[in-house]
Amino acid sequence: MKKLINDPADVVKDALRGIEAAHSDRLRVDHENRVIYRKDAPVRGKVGLVSGGGSGHEPLHGGFVGVGMLDAACAGEVFTSPVPDQMMAATAAVDGGAGVLHIVKNYTGDVMNFEMAAELAAADSGTEVVSVVTDDDVAVQDSTWTAGRRGVGVTVLLEKIVGAAAEEGRPLGEVADLARKVNGQGRSMGLALTSCTVPAAGKPTFELGESEFELGVGIHGEPGRQRLPLVPAKDLAALLVEPILGDLPYGKGDSVIAFVNGMGGTPLLELYVMYNEVAQLLGKAGVTVARSLVGNYITSLEMAGCSVTLLKVDDELVRLWDAPVNTPGLRWGV
């Protein structure tokens, strides 16, 4: 195992200190509870947005804390859910009087712990908390850590769009309804060319042959649909796009945000090769790309591979997507 770390047991702690050092102009970090906050939280009269999950997926979630996105992100150990105490602390700290929305990826530990934290927050301080779960992965119905579909790429798009709505001062019920709409209109699927190595484990999570790839892999290395011989990018793109198009389904005249996401170990050069193939497939299907996003936004440590997310959008969702955002992981319009 070759990694730029000190002690495997201190990876998350050390990374949080690095995040604080790099972005102290817009973030602050509660090191005891391992929570990243936007510097001005709580914002009076604004719905607070809290998300989080296991570390190792950066910039998700901590890199999306700031104006126009999240108010707080809870950092668990690598590929391990944060605990309810972290989530409860974050919820209390971002409550500006308008309630708090929890954005939760559909993994058993995350769902259970966020649910417990919401109940504790309501009982302790009377904070109104609503939770929305993302479950956009079309690859498999159930997986190692999930009952139902996994929450993946749509989470990034949702945090941006819902963050813009919260910034406008919309009430909690309206913000939560928007989050459910975004989740319902988005679908994702990924593939892996290599495994990744969790620092505490010191060895790859799974083994892939030199000429194999895993279709439908999860962001923690969970098995996908099948293991297949490696084929050119145009064929890989079709294996991702066609199941997504057929699942919602998407059709002629639909507009989408097209998101090609790197898993952490794939060069941007190759991600743009994949985006070109995705765009061509969408054009043939009569689907219009309203906006695009290409890069490493929800990663799996150093895993090589990518995922494709399509979010069906209307004028309102595009407007919220275009709204100003100022976070370490996404920034425009400011």
Score class of each variant (00 low, 15 high):
S188M: 12
L101N: 11
V94P: 11
V140L: 15
G333P: 06
G209F: 03
T205Q: 07
G169I: 00
D110Q: 05
G305T: 00
K3E: 12
Q280C: 12
G62K: 03
A200C: 00
Y250G: 00
V67R: 15
D142G: 11
M69P: 09
A98T: 03
I103Q: 15
T134R: 02
G68M: 09
K203V: 04
A200M: 08
N106H: 10
G264H: 04
G295E: 10
A98S: 07
V325N: 06
M189L: 15
E119W: 06
D7R: 09
H23R: 00
H23M: 00
G251H: 11
G163P: 05
G66I: 07
E207C: 00
L16W: 10
I161Q: 11
K2D: 08
K2Y: 06
L4F: 12
Y250V: 00
M87I: 14
G76K: 02
K234T: 09
P267L: 05
G221N: 02
L49M: 11
A201K: 06
L269C: 15
K252Y: 03
E20A: 15
L268V: 10
C74T: 13
G286H: 08
V100K: 04
G62R: 02
V132N: 03
V29T: 02
T127A: 14
S292R: 12
I298R: 01
V11G: 08
G218K: 08
L191T: 00
A147R: 12
L245Q: 06
T108Q: 09
G63Q: 04
V78Y: 00
P171Q: 08
L311I: 13
G286I: 06
G53E: 10
A304E: 05
M263A: 01
V154T: 09
N106W: 07
V260I: 06
E214V: 03
L158K: 09
H102P: 04
L228N: 04
Y37R: 11
E159V: 09
G202F: 02
Y275L: 01
E167Q: 14
N106P: 11
V100W: 14
G295T: 05
G52E: 03
A22L: 09
H31R: 13
I244D: 13
G48C: 04
A192N: 06
G66F: 14
G221I: 04
G253I: 04
K284L: 15
R187Y: 15
G153Q: 08
E115Q: 15
K312S: 06
F259P: 05
N326E: 10
H57G: 02
V334K: 08
V156P: 14
N106D: 14
N261G: 09
N113C: 13
V156K: 08
D254Y: 12
C196I: 01
E277F: 14
A201F: 01
P324A: 14
G48F: 11
M112Q: 14
V94T: 07
W332Y: 12
A237T: 01
G99A: 02
A93W: 15
K252D: 05
G96I: 04
A73P: 06
V43R: 13
M69L: 12
A92N: 13
L269E: 14
D136W: 04
Y297P: 04
G216Y: 08
S307T: 08
E119G: 11
M116W: 05
V156I: 15
D136M: 04
P171W: 10
D235L: 12
D7M: 03
W332D: 07
E316W: 02
V287Q: 11
A258W: 12
G173A: 09
A304V: 03
L178F: 00
G53A: 10
F79T: 01
C196A: 05
S131K: 14
R180C: 02
K13I: 05
